[in-house]
């Protein structure tokens, strides 16, 4: 059974700073995403799944429709598995309602006129993200017990919360520790991968120009996100 912990926006420097030893595993490092013009979530995960640079194709859909991308399993490396389970992955099994709601609140936050209003929207936004995270965690734990040859759990909490709260160290640290706990509970071999990391702009977070990877079996060096399709194929 091969498992991937796909953690959106997992930032290399914070994994180190917060001593997330379970996330680090034996080998860890940064991914190379310089081939992409911007570190866009949809573009990156689509490229991950297909093993090729999907930037042009995805961007052609426009900002709105981009989020509704749903690739055919035949175009992804998941196809080689008999019974794969992919939870909430952008571009494949993305829970669009949830994430549409998040973006809606994000817009509301920036449109809000008073500090008070902003504060309230932020609270709602955060609650929405945390609730979803709890649901995903539960589902993921259940799926791990079931009989699949490939499992991918996608965790968006660090990215969603990070955009509005990256400067809140306490919050970010607790999220990272929680993710580290999830990694710690894994019984079988797994890969940790993020599409990009995060960097601070005041209280907010922007995407950084590299992702995070870790394994317990091989030092991957500085892989591109498109290399993972091949890497996982070879693991079988």
């Amino acid at each position: 059974m091969i498992t991937v912990l796909a953690i959106d926006a997992l930032e290399y420097t914070l994994v180190e700073k917060f001593d997330c030893n379970n996330l680090k595993q034996k080998y860890y490092g940064k991914t190379n995403i310089s081939e992409f013009s911007e570190p866009r979530t949809m573009v990156l995960w689509s490229s991950f799944m297909t093993g090729k640079n999907m930037e042009k194709e995805i961007l052609a859909k426009g900002d709105k429709d981009m989020w509704n991308t749903k690739l055919d399993i035949k175009d992804t490396f998941f196809d080689q598995f008999e019974n794969p389970k992919i939870i909430d992955l952008p571009g494949f099994s993305y829970i669009t309602d949830q994430h549409d709601q998040e973006r809606k609140l994000l817009k509301e936050f920036f449109d809000a006129q008073s500090e008070e209003e902003k504060g309230q929207v932020r609270v709602d936004y955060n609650n929405l993200a945390f609730e979803h995270h709890r649901k995903i965690k539960e589902e993921f734990i259940d799926v791990l017990e079931a009989d699949h040859d490939f499992i991918l759990g996608y965790f968006s909490v660090a990215d969603v919360i990070g955009h509005l709260n990256f400067g809140n160290r306490t919050m970010m640290k607790m999220i990272y520790k929680d993710l580290d706990e999830i990694a710690g509970s894994m019984k079988n071999q797994f890969i940790v991968l993020s599409d990009h990391g995060m960097e601070q702009i005041g209280i907010f977070g922007d995407h950084s120009n590299y992702g995070f990877w870790s394994t317990d079996f091989k030092d991957l060096g500085n892989p591109g996100i498109t290399d993972f399709a091949k890497i996982i194929k070879e693991m079988r």
């Binding site: 609650n127 945390f130 609730e131 709890r134 306490t170 919050m171 607790m174 999220i175 929680d178």
Partner: peptide, 12 residues
Amino acid sequence: EEIEQICKSLGK
């Protein structure tokens, strides 16, 4: 309070 809130949100 802040820490309690985040703990609650994470279900801890």
